[in-house]
C-alpha cells in the first residue's frame, strides 16, 4: 500500500561534530544530520524535538562519572531519550547533508552520563522531528521569552529562529535558574552580579537573569521578574506573545502572569515518554476541554501547548 500521508518524521543517522562541556554538568552536543535527516529537518519549528538512541553509547571511565551518578549510571538503556534543540542551522548552499543541530544537555542519569563519552565522528540514531513546536503568530511585534534551567534550549532555538525569520520582531529573554552555577549557557560575568548569557547576547537579544538564591541577577523566580518588567514596560497584547519552557511550576507561573496582562502564552511541556510518536500513550498532559478535562499527548499534541488550555501539575 502506498502511504498517502506525507512523511514528516523518520529514523536517520547523525554524526557527532563536537561534544563540549560548558560548565559542570552542562554540555553542548553538535550534530551533523545525514541527507534523510537534513530533508526532514529543513523546515523544523523551534520547540519540535527528537528521540536519540543512546543504548549503544558506552559509559565513560568511572573517574569521569559524577560521584552521585556512579551507582545509577550502571543501569542499561533500552528506550530512546527525548531532546529538544537549542539551534538548527540549515545551510542552503550545501546539498544533501545540510542540517546541523545543537543540543544542550545536563548530565543527570544513565543516558546523559553515556552522552558524555560521545566524540567527533561517532554516529547515533535519531528519530524526528517530533511534536508541535512554537507557533509564531502573524504580525508578532514583541516576543517575551521565558526560560527556566534545563528548559532553556528550545527557548534559545526560538530566539535564533525569530532573529533569522522575523527580524522586525522585538525579542526579550528572561532566564531563571537555581543559582549562578546552574545556567545551561556560556555565562560571562559582567558588572557586579550581572551575568551575560553569551548565546543570547550573540544574536542581539537582551537577557534578564533571575536566580532563586540571588547569586546573580534578580533574586527570586523568573516569573516574578517577568511580572515586574511587564508592570514597568506595557506591551500591546494584540501584537505580543509569551513563549516559555522550563519546570512545570515555572510554566504555571508564567501562564498566570501572561493571563494577568492579557498576553497569549505558549508553553513547552515535559513528560517521561517512551516512543515520542504517540504509540505508548505515556506522556499525558491534562488539558481543559469544555467543562471537563482530557489527557493529550506531550509528544504528539505538544510539547508546545497554549498555556490557557493546560491543567498544570503543581507540587
Amino acid at each position: 500500500m502506498e502511504n498517502e500521508k506525507a512523511v514528516n518524521k523518520g529514523i536517520f543517522e547523525a554524526e557527532v561534530l563536537s561534544n563540549q562541556q560548558i560548565r559542570q554538568c552542562y554540555y553542548r552536543l553538535n550534530l551533523q544530520f545525514d541527507a534523510k535527516g537534513s530533508r526532514l529537518f529543513e523546515n523544523v519549528a523551534p520547540g519540535q524535538f527528537s528521540e536519540l538512541d543512546l543504548s549503544n553509547v558506552s559509559l565513560p571511565e568511572t573517574s569521569m562519572i559524577p560521584i552521585h551518578l556512579r551507582d545509577t549510571s550502571a543501569k542499561q538503556i533500552l528506550l530512546r531519550r527525548p531532546f529538544s534543540f537549542s539551534d538548527i542551522v540549515v545551510s542552503p548552499l550545501t546539498e544533501g547533508c545540510c542540517v546541523k543541530a545543537e543540543i544542550l544537555y545536563c548530565v543527570l542519569g544513565p543516558a546523559t552520563v553515556r552522552m558524555m563519552s560521545l566524540k567527533c565522528d561517532d554516529r547515533i540514531s535519531v528519530l524526528g522531528p517530533l511534536g508541535k513546536g512554537f507557533m509564531v503568530p502573524d504580525g508578532l511585534k514583541q516576543a517575551i521569552l521565558v526560560a527556566g534551567g534545563m528548559g532553556s534550549p528550545p527557548v534559545l532555538h526560538l530566539a535564533n529562529h525569530l532573529k533569522q525569520h522575523h527580524p522586525d520582531c522585538e525579542v526579550i529573554a528572561f532566564v531563571g535558574a537555581k543559582s549562578i552555577e546552574s545556567f545551561p549557557f556560556t555565562v560571562r560575568i559582567g558588572n557586579a552580579k550581572n551575568l551575560v548569557l553569551e548565546e543570547f547576547e550573540r544574536i542581539g537579544i537582551p537577557s534578564h537573569i533571575a536566580t532563586d538564591d540571588g547569586s546573580a541577577g534578580y533574586h527570586g523566580f523568573v516569573t516574578d521578574n517577568v511580572r515586574h518588567w511587564l508592570e514597568n514596560n506595557p506591551v500591546d497584547p494584540a501584537s505580543s506573545a509569551v513563549f516559555a519552557c522550563g519546570p512545570e511550576p515555572m510554566l504555571a507561573g508564567t501562564a498566570r502572569v501572561a493571563k494577568d496582562f492579557n498576553l497569549p502564552c505558549q508553553v513547552s511541556m515535559e513528560r517521561m515518554m517512551a516512543c515520542g510518536i504517540g504509540l505508548c500513550q505515556s506522556c499525558a498532559v491534562e488539558v481543559k476541554k469544555n467543562s471537563d478535562t482530557e489527557y493529550q499527548l506531550c509528544c504528539k499534541n505538544g510539547p508546545v501547548f497554549n498555556a490557557e488550555d493546560v491543567v498544570f501539575e503543581e507540587e
Binding site: K75, L78, M272, S282, A284, E294, Y295, E313
Partner: peptide
C-alpha cells in the same frame, strides 16, 4: 477512559514498566 495520571512509565534494566 482518561487513563492514569503521570508518570505512566519508567525504564528498568532491559525493560520498562507502564501503567497507562
Amino acid at each position: 477512559r482518561k487513563g492514569n495520571p503521570t508518570p505512566r512509565i519508567v525504564e528498568t534494566n532491559s525493560g520498562m514498566l507502564n501503567a497507562i
